[in-house]
Nucleic acid binder design. Structure first.
Lengths: 116, 116
DNA sequence: GTTTGCAATCGTAAATCTACGATAAGCGCT
DNA sequence: AGCGCTTATCGTAGATTTACGATTGCAAAC
């Protein structure tokens, strides 16, 4: 019955995966939460709070920036990081769309772990 | 002023990261969507629709199962996969909690990309 | 019991990720 | 120009991920 064995993934799937991947590390989740809690954007403070070296934190920030979840502005000698509103809107949208497709997590949910 | 340079990440951060990581690959997002669209759980059908070999699909399913997002039941000679309602409830909760912390994505959002 | 068909596991190679120290680059100040 | 502070990048090592073919395991059918 004509299963077309697709040769690629949709753009939505790829972008959702990219954003999920960016959040797929505890350190990056922690960074996001730190940026959210205090609007504090200074990179140095993140290094102070995280159990990671400066270069590692910088690398994580780079990935979050590449995923569009974080923004960095140069502010004099230091760099000011903050969450990217547009990126998070996209993330919320993509994840919401996925959840909407799930019959299971439609809000009622959890009637039972029964499968087919 | 007494930044305690935490030595570990919270349980929530770790579990959210684990689930995000599980969704951090287009193939796994596609698998979830396939399982959602048709309740079809049969592993073989997934292989038919995806541009991946049987062993690779099996590996992805294993990861999704480990993350608690997917369940597998043996049904005769074949295996029946479906979404794990409880796992998705947790994912929804964790992601929702994170979004709630973001001042930026609080619903209004997107006034501007201004940083600090 | 043997065969058949489906799915998991094994073994593997290549690519990517994670972490660090060391080094460079940029900015403000003297 | 030169110095100090902050961040990015480089180079590197080890671990993990991704993908595949080949093999094994299991349940039904013959």
């Amino acid at each position: 019955m004509a299963f077309h064995k697709r040769t690629h993934f949709t753009a939505q799937e790829q972008q959702l995966a990219a954003m999920a991947k960016a959040l797929g590390h505890p350190a990056r989740v922690a960074i996001v939460r730190l940026l959210a809690q205090r609007q504090a954007c200074v990179c140095g403070e993140l290094v102070l709070e995280l159990p990671l070296s400066q270069s590692t934190v910088s690398q994580h920030l780079k990935e979050l920036k590449a995923a569009g979840l974080v923004q960095g502005e140069v502010d004099g000698p230091r760099v000011c990081y903050c969450l990217d509103a547009a990126g998070w809107a996209v993330a919320r949208q993509l994840f919401g769309d996925l959840l909407a497709e799930l019959p299971v997590a439609a809000g009622t949910a959890a009637t039972g772990p029964v499968c087919c």
